[in-house]
Design a protein around this nucleic acid. Structure first.
Lengths: 125, 125, 125, 125
DNA sequence: GTGGTCTAGACCACC
DNA sequence: GTGGTCTAGACCACT
């Protein structure tokens, strides 16, 4: 399904959380889709099931995952609420990132194109 | 000079490293400028000098700082080599961030404008 | 595993860094091999764990070590990129060293033979 | 005459010592040649005369410099005594350096050529 | 006074 | 048990 990056500083569960977040945000997983079972995913990533459990718990808290006992875990209905405070925080990160890109030698046009692409993505059926 | 955020999950030395990185990338500090001395900054931030030392060492490894024992620490001459691998890594982060922004409800134009602004910044005298 | 030289003017952590660097460059340690744990090596060398930490951090920055919290430290996948600037720097050192050897009375053939030997070394399985 | 490298980890006096050592070993300075005066060199390098003093003292101890009060400092007669122990030590360094060169991607032939060049150098009148 | 090294010891998150 | 962070405090070499 995806692979873990051990070079990444972040804990494994955080990486897993983020991967699913992305799958949902990009529309690859949609409302009602089933998450892989904890044991299944643990086996496939060759890590401890506890770690998956923790990731799923986080996703549930963040409102992306809906756990139905004896059934499994499913993608929760997305509720897209504009959040100005969050936007400001993200824009701050964006500025840092843009400066890093500029420093690393990335072309202005290439960077802008990436943004355009994201906004062109359809993530609803 | 700046303040530490103890709520932040990142280590103190990483916060310090990042602050100086930004000061340099934004052009607020330039080649040859003197960093505060290890002890001075430690006192001003009310933390242990070793922590500053660690931050400075990281900056030095990253090529932003040149430390001269018995003299002080200075902004190193920048050698800006386009680094395709680094750019790809950063673009990956950019895509994630852009999706988050889109999800949080940020306007496409606002996001693009931020990028434009960064690329308009002058970091030369 | 190896011993420290307290007479040496270089810091302990630098000696440790260098030892591992050599083990890797000579092929004695290979990609994926496990480094001794921080505490273990500290005990075995009778020094403070922090010093080992520092050495490992340097190796990690240099791309030789990959440390995975709660797992251990491993020889990182080697990415061998020819680096002209580095080569020039090393050749400069080589010239100095060769002059010293000549001055000390080393035979030209003996010196050349050492180089040949290194280039004959296999560091692949 | 030469320039100091503040990026170099070694103390300034050690760099100065080494520079003169090289000038003598390469034959650029020969027996009886006069060293620049302490104050003169200090001014030209923009550093403290004490630092030059220390460097000269080291050169004197190593037998490269002969200080004649009220006259100045001169290149001492070189006494080239083959020193097997020293040679072994240097060869050890040579091996490390050769491995680094190999790793950095230097060609075997280029490395050998450097050695040949040194041995072709004339350093006596 | 400057950067740098090292120790001892505590504490944390992760697996 | 693993790596990682931080403190407190000592000591060193260099300028």
């Amino acid at each position: 399904m995806f692979t873990l990056n051990y070079g990444d500083r972040r804990p494994l569960y955080a990486q897993i959380t983020e991967k699913f977040r992305e799958l949902i945000l990009t529309g690859a997983m949609r409302e009602g889709d089933k998450f892989p079972s904890v044991r299944e995913l643990a086996a496939s990533l060759a890590i401890n099931p506890n770690t998956i459990q923790k990731a799923y718990k986080e996703l549930e808290n963040a409102g992306f995952l809906l756990s139905i006992p004896a059934k499994g875990s499913f993608v929760a209905p997305v509720k897209r609420v504009p959040d100005p405070a969050k936007i400001q925080e993200l824009l701050q990160k964006l500025r840092s990132l843009a400066r890093e890109l500029k420093f690393a030698g990335a072309e202005r046009e290439a960077v802008l194109a990436e943004i355009e692409n994201i906004y062109k993505e359809e993530n609803k059926a």
